[in-house]
Computed example of a mutant assay.
Amino acid sequence: MFSKLAYSVFEQSINDYHQFDNVDQPIANPYGKDQFEHLLYMKNWIDTVQWHFEDIIRDPQIDPVAALVLKRRIDASNQERTDVVEYIDSYFLQKYQGVQAKAGAKINSESPAWAFDRLSILALKIYHMNEEATRAEATQAHRDACQAKLNILLEQRTDLSTAIDELLTDIENGDKYMKVYKQMKMYNDDDLNPVLYQNKK
């Protein structure tokens, strides 16, 4: 099952990151570039680093100049995240290119890669909520509340994993078909963001 494979790679990436717990630690992707797992690991590593960027930038004592530098890094990370999602969808488009969609086949509201994006973020929520649910110096009330939230996240993981596997099975059987739209983000584009193109004059 693709969801089980993906989640195991996401967990590996999260655990590898937390050996150093440093946003500047370079990625050491253990998978070859010809492996699907390479994209999954890269995707989650980006998400994991950005998770910690988002923690850092919320520090009320952060230096404004440092915050601006970090905001630029978050913007770049967002673009990289989107690029990798599109690479993952390209993998599935190629994988299922020979499948003939059945008459009446339907399209899904999101592509497989964006569903994996949600699973990657969910893996991070589970990891960090588990940290809070077992944090020794926290109050018992805090740990109990976080455990209740963790239980919901684990249920969500089951549901999302099932939905992903069912989607891929439907595509493989021709009951659904893939149609991928590029994100076409405008704010990073010098020709589409008015603030940027007006400054070029």
Rank of each mutant, 00 (worst) to 15 (best):
S3H: 04
K4D: 08
S8E: 12
V9N: 02
E11P: 02
Q12P: 05
Q12Y: 05
D16M: 04
Q19K: 15
F20G: 06
F20C: 14
D21P: 08
V23Y: 11
A28Q: 12
P30Y: 03
Y31T: 07
K33F: 14
D34V: 05
D34W: 05
E37F: 07
K43C: 10
T48Q: 01
T48V: 02
T48K: 01
V49S: 03
E54H: 11
D55P: 02
D55F: 01
I56S: 08
I57S: 02
I57H: 01
R58E: 06
D59T: 10
P60I: 10
V65E: 14
V65W: 08
D83S: 12
E86K: 00
F92I: 07
K95H: 00
V99E: 02
V99N: 01
A105I: 03
S111G: 05
P112Q: 06
A113P: 09
A115G: 07
A115Q: 09
R118P: 10
L119K: 05
I126R: 03
Y127Q: 10
E132V: 03
E132I: 08
A138G: 04
H142S: 13
A145V: 08
Q147Y: 14
K149M: 15
L150C: 07
L154K: 15
E155N: 15
T162R: 15
A163R: 12
D165Q: 05
E166S: 07
L167C: 02
D175G: 09
D175T: 06
M178H: 03
K182F: 12
K182S: 13
M184I: 02
M184V: 11
N188A: 12
N193Y: 10
N199K: 15
K201A: 14
